[in-house]
Amino acid sequence: MTLFSQRGWRKSLTLLVAASAIAYAGPSRAAEGEGSHGAEASRQDWTFGGLTGHFDRAQLRRGYTVYKNVCAACHGMRLMYFRNLSQPGGPEFATGNVEQFASEAQVQDGPDDNGDMFTRPGKPSDRFPSPYANAKAAAAAQNGAVPPDLSVMAKARAVESSGAWYMSPFHWIRDIVTNYQEGGPDYIYALLTGYAEPPAGFNLTAGMNYNKAFPGHQIAMPQPLTDGSVEYTDGTPGTVDNYARDVTAFLMWSAEPKLEERKRMGLKVLIYLVILAGLLYLSKRALWRNVKH
């Protein structure tokens, strides 16, 4: 009859499930074509995706090393404190390590009893140091382009799903069914590994760099990672691919430090609600059994 009758609802639900199945089985690359932005990124397999997602401690520790030795030269993370590095759900460095990382930074403090500002070694309660005093200083040092803060970068970027317009609803359903929230990390990984020689005929502005993943393909940031540029102490090979993957995971954690707590609680809440819904349905049915309606 209509979608509002019970049979109709069931039919539309079946259709929806079938549609998501088709969408799910379809191409899994987030962006195949060259859209108006030309951002190109494929889906990576992250430990923090999915219903039971969690961070890989060793990976976050390596990622912090990459950030500290490479990214931190130009990019600040003003929302991060050294103490975060030892809190549960993150890289979980030992407190001693965190104190040592913090003490490597020189922090301005004060005023002291004489009214003077002074510098002291950092403490775990201090923020990550910023490479520049302010945005003007950053722009002056970086040829006019201000390196953005990386604290929540993994949530501030996404992969635009391209393809024919009529495919969009299927992509939405696929992303919802697979709870895809890793567009930011996929983009960052693609960007860090996307440096290449510009194709023949590409008009590259002087001082810019060609990048396959960056919208418009011209990025001010020079290629930050090269094989062997950061020393890993846990035996992981020092390749660009590993650096990119590890630092991306680190950025996802810094953007979403409560991700593990959230996903753990979410599973419990969902199981609870599904059981409760089942019991309530049985109560409702028992109650209405002898009431014609």
Partner: peptide, 27 residues
């Protein structure tokens, strides 16, 4: 019963797709 079923969808988004319906530029 209906609120609880709706709550399943609600919770799924809160815990697993909290930023899906938002825009990345707002970060």
């Amino acid at each position: 019963f209906a609120v609880t079923v709706f709550g399943v969808l609600f919770a799924y988004f809160v815990f697993y797709l909290p930023n899906y319906l938002g825009h990345p530029d707002n970060y």
